[in-house]
C-alpha cells in the first residue's frame, strides 16, 4: 500500500515537473530599434560582441528615423534609439517613453548638403528640391538652416524620402537643378561622391541641438532596470573599445553603417560628441531648456 502510494506520488511529481517544464516559457526579450547612425554604433557593437543576448535584449535595425517611429508604433518594441525630435513626437502620442542612455550629440553628424553653395542658393531664382525625411530631425535641421542663412523666401520643393531612398534616387538620376539634401552620417559620404557638398551641419548651426539617446517605456525600465544599467556599462565599454581599437570596432559595426569605409567611419566619429559620460553643465541647461527629461538617465 505504502509502496503504491510512493509510486503514485512519484508519478504526480514527475507529471508536475513535466508540466512546469512545459509551461515555463522563456521571458520575452527586451526589443529595441535603432537606425543606421554612427552614434548608435555602440549598440551594434554590443550586439556583434554578443553582449546583448545575456541581457535578453534584441536589437532590430532599420534604415531611417522615420522608419524607426513607424516600426515602434506597431507595438512590439520596448524602446528605440532616436533624437529628441522622435522622442517628442512619440510622447505627443502618449508613448510614455523615457530617455535612459545618452549616446551622442550631433556635432556635424546631421548636415545639409547641396550641389550649390549657400551663396548660390541665395541667388538662385529656381525652385530648389529639398530631399529630407520630413517626419524626423531633418525638418528641424533644415528649418534652422534656412533661418540661419535667411533662405525663408526661397521656393522649396519638399520631397519626403528617407536617406537611403534619397541616395538611391541621386545615384539613378543625374542632378540637373538646384538641390538640397538634409541627411546624416554615414549617408553623406556616398552623396558627396555625386557632387553634393556639406553646406551646413550641426557643427556650425548653433541654434540646433541634436542629441541621440535610447528611450524605453517606463514600465519596461521599472521591470528591467538592472538590465539597462548593465547595457549602459556595455555601451561605455563599447566606446572604450572604440577608442582602444577603432579598426576592430569598425569591422564589427560596418554592416550597420551602410558599409562605409574605415575613413568615412573615422570621419563620422568626428561629427559626433559622445555623451556616455557625465553631461556638461551647459548641455544640461540646454536640455532642460528644451524640456528634455534627463532625470532617469542611467
Amino acid at each position: 500500500m505504502l509502496k503504491n502510494l510512493k509510486v503514485i506520488l512519484m508519478i504526480i511529481m514527475i507529471a508536475l515537473a513535466g508540466l512546469t517544464g512545459c509551461s515555463s516559457q522563456p521571458e520575452p526579450p527586451i526589443k529595441l530599434i535603432a537606425n543606421s547612425w554612427i552614434g548608435y554604433s555602440p549598440l551594434f557593437y554590443a550586439k556583434e560582441k554578443g553582449w546583448l543576448k545575456p541581457l535578453n535584449i534584441e536589437l532590430s535595425t532599420v534604415v531611417s528615423l522615420g522608419e524607426s517611429i513607424m516600426t515602434y508604433k506597431t507595438g512590439h518594441f520596448n524602446g528605440l534609439a532616436g533624437t529628441q525630435y522622435e522622442f517628442a513626437k512619440l510622447q505627443k502620442q502618449n508613448a510614455n517613453l523615457v530617455p535612459i542612455i545618452m549616446f551622442d550629440r550631433s556635432n556635424g553628424g546631421d548636415m545639409v548638403m547641396s550641389n550649390l553653395s549657400i551663396n548660390s542658393l541665395k541667388k538662385t531664382t529656381e525652385s530648389v528640391d529639398v530631399y529630407l525625411e520630413i517626419n524626423s530631425i531633418n525638418s528641424a535641421v533644415f528649418k534652422d538652416f534656412i533661418k540661419a542663412h535667411e533662405l525663408e523666401n526661397k521656393t522649396f520643393n519638399f520631397i519626403n524620402k528617407d536617406p537611403l531612398k534619397t541616395l538611391a534616387q541621386i545615384k539613378q538620376s543625374p542632378i540637373t537643378q538646384p538641390l538640397i539634401i538634409v541627411t546624416y552620417s554615414p549617408y553623406n559620404f556616398e552623396l558627396s561622391k555625386h557632387g553634393l557638398n556639406i553646406i551646413a551641419s550641426t557643427k556650425n548651426i548653433e541654434d540646433i541641438l541634436v542629441v541621440d539617446a535610447l528611450y524605453v517605456k517606463k514600465s519596461c525600465l521599472t521591470e528591467h532596470k538592472a538590465h539597462f544599467i548593465k547595457l549602459k556599462q556595455l555601451i561605455n565599454q563599447a566606446i572604450q573599445d572604440l577608442h582602444t581599437n577603432p579598426r576592430d570596432y569598425y569591422e564589427k559595426v560596418k554592416p550597420y553603417l551602410e558599409n562605409s569605409s574605415y575613413e568615412e567611419f573615422s570621419a563620422s566619429l568626428n561629427q559626433i560628441e559622445w555623451l556616455n559620460s557625465e553631461l556638461s553643465e551647459p548641455l544640461i541647461k540646454k536640455l532642460n531648456h528644451t524640456s528634455f527629461p534627463i532625470r532617469d538617465l542611467l
Binding site: M70, T74, K161
Partner: peptide
Amino acid sequence: TEEIHLTLSETGYLISTSFD
C-alpha cells in the same frame, strides 16, 4: 489584430513616405 495592425502600419508608412 497584429496582422491587421502591421498591414495598416506598413501600408501607412509606404503611403506616408511616398506621398507627394
